[in-house]
Each structure stands twice: as structure tokens, then as C-alpha cells.
């Protein structure tokens, strides 16, 4: 009986939170068409999300590209198809690893930041203060953050794609004796624009997921310091999980 209770409570909690995320998304979409949009807030958040994530994102992409080149070389070398390394690196960066790894990194950095920031504002009544200063807290805090992360994630992914392919090239040229021109030619020759777009569309979806989950957790936070801590952890874990699940769904349904 106790076990059932625990499972029930867990499930209720899960449904409750999914409901909150859905409501948040609906509210963002409902409020988006009408001003005020607070462009300054969007810019500030875009800088926080985009520019400040660059080091961690680019480093991730570089080393992923490099390790991918090494590993696929091992495999392809066994049946003499080393020239395929470049294609595997570029294809997997563009379609899969670019968007997913960048999104996971940003979820850890930005999703947690949103939840902590908004959560602290909520428990210290700064959200209520916005309301009493005739400013809609939702429009001022949530919408700019969601817009910023949805816009910046595709840009980060595009940069990560380039750096990742560059990393693969570096390893192939420096360690595996490939010539740069042949490597790059092979990389690009087999790609279609669809490969690139699919990654970018994924990035936009992941970006909005990170924004919605981080902001929901922060905005509906309660219970002081502990509440903010829990909200931050939940924002990170749930966005990371959602990214992985959504990645499969998007890949399976849209980009066969």
C-alpha cells in the first residue's frame, strides 16, 4: 500500500508539473502577439544565454568533433574506409551531437540560472513588487527569457557544428594523415541542407523547452532557499531528460 502511495504521489507530482509547463507555454504564446515586449530585457538575456555560453559550448563541440574523428577512424580503418570519417563526423555533428550536446550544456547553465534567478525573485517578493509597479511580471521576466533562449540556441548550434567539423578535421589532418582539402570536401559533399536544418529545428525546440522549464520552475517556486535549490535542480534534470526524449521523437517522426 505504501509503495502504491509513493508511486501515486510521484505520478501526481509529475502530472502537476507537466500541466504547469503546458500552461506556461500557452501563456507565452498568448502574450507574445501583444506589446509590451521589453526588447532590452530580450537583449540582456540573449547576451547571458548566447554570448556567455560560447566558451562552454565551443569547447564541448571541439572535443566532440575530435573524439568522433578518432573513434570512427578506428572503426572505418578495419575495412579500409578511412575516407568516410569526415562524413560521419559532419553528419553526426549536424544532425545529432551538435543540437543535443549544446542543448544539454545550455540546460545546465541557463535553465538552472533562470530557475534560480526567478525563484529568488519570487521568494523575496520581487515578482509581486513588479506587479505593484504596474509591470506584468510574466511579460517582463518570462517571455524575454524564453524568446532569448529559443533564438540563441540555434545560433550556438550552428557555431558548434562548424567548430565540431573543424575539430574532426584537426585530428584527421594532424594524427591520421588526411589532407585538409580532401577532408573538408568529403565533409560537405555528402551533406544536404536538410541535415543542417534538422539540427537547427531541433535546437529551436530544445531552446524553448529549456526556457519554459527553467522559467516555470523559478516562477512557481515557493519555500525559501530550499525551494529555490529544488527548483534549480528540477529545472536542470527535467530539461535534460526532456531534451533526450524529444530528440528521439523529433528524429523518428520528422527527419527519417
Amino acid at each position: 500500500m505504501k509503495v502504491l502511495n509513493i508511486i501515486g504521489a510521484w505520478f501526481e507530482n509529475l502530472l502537476n508539473h507537466s500541466g504547469l509547463y503546458a500552461m506556461m507555454l500557452i501563456q507565452v504564446l498568448r502574450k507574445l502577439p501583444k506589446p509590451p515586449w521589453y526588447p532590452r530585457q530580450i537583449l540582456i538575456q540573449a547576451e547571458q544565454v548566447g554570448v556567455q555560453s560560447l566558451p562552454v559550448v565551443l569547447l564541448t563541440a571541439l572535443f566532440t568533433g575530435m573524439v568522433l574523428a578518432l573513434q570512427s577512424y578506428v572503426g572505418f580503418h578495419r575495412f579500409g574506409a578511412e575516407s568516410m570519417v569526415s562524413m560521419v563526423v559532419s553528419l553526426s555533428m549536424l544532425r545529432e551531437l551538435g543540437p543535443v550536446l549544446v542543448a544539454l550544456m545550455v540546460a545546465g547553465r541557463v535553465g538552472a540560472q533562470f530557475a534560480a534567478e526567478l525563484g529568488t525573485m519570487r521568494v523575496s517578493q520581487q515578482v509581486d513588487a513588479l506587479w505593484t509597479l504596474s509591470t506584468d511580471p510574466f511579460r517582463y521576466l518570462v517571455t524575454p527569457r524564453v524568446i532569448a533562449v529559443t533564438m540563441m540556441l540555434p545560433l550556438l548550434v550552428a557555431l558548434a557544428d562548424i567548430v565540431g567539423i573543424g575539430g574532426g578535421c584537426l585530428i584527421s589532418v594532424a594524427l591520421l594523415g588526411e589532407t585538409p582539402s580532401v577532408y573538408l570536401h568529403n565533409s560537405i559533399h555528402f551533406l544536404t541542407l536538410n541535415d543542417f536544418y534538422s539540427g537547427i529545428i531541433k535546437a529551436m525546440v530544445f531552446g524553448s523547452v529549456i526556457g519554459i522549464i527553467g522559467c516555470t520552475e523559478g516562477f512557481h517556486c515557493s519555500g525559501g532557499a530550499q525551494g529555490v535549490g529544488q527548483a534549480t535542480t528540477r529545472a536542470m534534470v527535467i530539461s535534460a531528460m526532456s531534451i533526450l526524449v524529444l530528440d528521439y521523437i523529433l528524429t523518428a517522426w520528422l527527419f527519417q
Binding site: 525573485m121 523575496s124 517578493q125 520581487q126 509581486d128 513588487a129 505593484t132
Partner: peptide
């Protein structure tokens, strides 16, 4: 105008 308990300054 509202004055909050802990002032709630931004």
C-alpha cells in the same frame, strides 16, 4: 504604491 516587508528591491 507598495512597501514590502523586506523591501523587495530589484
Amino acid at each position: 504604491g507598495m512597501v514590502f516587508q523586506n523591501s523587495a528591491l530589484f
